[in-house]
Computed example of a mutant assay.
Amino acid sequence: MSFPPLRDGLQGLQPYGAPQLDVPVQLNVNENPYGPSPACVADIATAVAQAASGLNRYPDREFVALRAALADYLSHDTPHPITPDQVWAANGSNEVMLQLLQAFGGPGRTALSFAPTYSMYPEYARDTLTTWEQGRREDDFGLDLDAARALVEARRPSVVLLPSPNNPTGTALPPEAVTLLCEATAAHDGLVVVDEAYGEFRRDGTPSALELLPRHRNLVVTRTMSKAFALAGGRLGYLAADPAICDAIRVVRLPYHLSAVTQAVALAALRHAPELLGKVDQLRAERDATVGWLRGRGLQVADSDANFVLFGTFPDRHAVWQGLLDRGVLIREVGPDGWLRVSVGTPEEMSSFRDALTHVLGTKVTEESTS
């Protein structure tokens, strides 16, 4: 037996992670390129200093104040008020998802999603010994609702994971898709988790699944402060669901899983929500301009409700990715074969991306024409 004695199913695997490279233009992990203002930084620093004076004590394990603040924030996105007992939080939406599968997945149970989708989902299933099942999306990355319902009815998953907007495609789901799958999953007491990590970037007229919570007791809507909130370094993800679901998660959560410092940072950030979210409209406009520019170059581009754009297709996408990197622009080699994903950055960063891609594609055309 090899050392260390890693359990079956994990041997030989590489840990998840996007490349972390020190380059001038980093557009690969869907961060908000606009950092907090000096006033927000000062508020966070004061809050952390206050928390530090009591670090000899454990934090509030129920994070009551934070849940109330998150509920208030979410209530602005739905006509139905969200209450603190409907909210749960953890260290990033990754831990939220893992806790959901720890509580509602496991041996003898199945989690299901529709590819292409977030590459961590099967890892959550693997780590919780949950069977992983995967349907397929249509060519436009939407869902065939009849086929999706048939798959749910056939496989009877305990948890259905539905990102909206989807990562890496940016595709948002219509409310009727969420309702259909909630109803199909409820027939065998399963949950539907709508992952709205990029929900704040959705286009006008695209509702949040939060609006459907009163209709579907088995619906969970997850969010994060890592993207639109510009708090990727703070590691705070959360969900809204029936209070009974939040209560059940307590069985699997680690003791005091949200530190006093994390709670203080998140609360301070929520006090500055209008400011931190103030660049969302600008990022949407930059996203839409990027979609138009890429299509103007004859490329395929997925419609996006997120802060990133999936584009292609390339016979050798790695060569294009490397060519951009050689010119100081880092994007993500992810998604279906032949496609690449670029995060939306500042106007200056997007200009650098366009210049680099124009050069790379021009060079590639020249090389092909002379070969």
Rank of each mutant, 00 (worst) to 15 (best):
F3M: 14
P4T: 04
P5L: 03
P5E: 03
P5Q: 02
D8A: 12
L13A: 07
L13G: 08
Q14P: 11
P15R: 05
A18M: 12
P19R: 09
Q20C: 11
Q20V: 14
N28L: 04
E31F: 13
E31S: 12
N32I: 01
A39I: 00
C40M: 07
C40A: 12
C40T: 10
A42P: 04
A47D: 03
V48Q: 00
A49T: 07
G54H: 11
Y58L: 15
F63M: 13
A65R: 11
D72M: 01
D72H: 11
Y73F: 13
T78Y: 02
I82K: 00
T83W: 01
G92H: 08
G92E: 10
N94K: 15
E95R: 15
E95M: 15
V96I: 13
M97A: 15
L100N: 05
Q102C: 10
Q102D: 13
A103Q: 14
A103V: 07
G106N: 04
P107G: 06
A115V: 06
T117V: 04
Y118I: 14
Y118D: 12
M120H: 10
P122H: 01
P122C: 04
D127F: 06
L129Q: 14
G135C: 09
R136I: 04
R137M: 03
E138G: 13
D139A: 15
D139G: 14
D140Y: 08
L145V: 15
A147R: 07
A147Q: 11
A147P: 07
R149W: 07
R156N: 00
L162W: 08
P165I: 02
P165K: 01
P168H: 05
E176H: 03
A177C: 10
A177M: 05
L181Q: 00
A184N: 04
A186F: 08
A187P: 02
H188P: 12
V193K: 06
V194P: 01
Y198R: 01
T206R: 12
A209T: 01
E211R: 14
L212N: 02
L213M: 08
R215N: 15
N218L: 08
N218E: 13
N218V: 09
L219D: 01
T222R: 11
F229P: 06
A230Y: 05
A230G: 14
A230D: 11
L231W: 09
G233N: 15
G234S: 09
Y238F: 15
A241F: 08
D242L: 11
P243K: 11
C246F: 09
I249W: 10
R253N: 14
R253E: 15
L254N: 10
L254S: 13
Y256G: 10
H257W: 13
S259E: 05
S259W: 00
S259I: 03
T262V: 09
Q263R: 02
L267C: 10
L267A: 06
A269C: 13
R271D: 09
H272K: 04
P274E: 01
L277S: 01
G278Y: 06
K279S: 13
A285P: 05
T290V: 03
V291C: 05
V291K: 01
G296S: 09
R297M: 12
G298H: 01
V301I: 07
D305K: 02
D316M: 02
R317M: 00
W321C: 00
Q322G: 06
Q322T: 11
L325S: 04
G328T: 03
I331M: 10
V334L: 13
G335Y: 05
G338N: 03
L340E: 09
S343V: 03
S351A: 15
T358F: 08
H359K: 12
G362M: 04
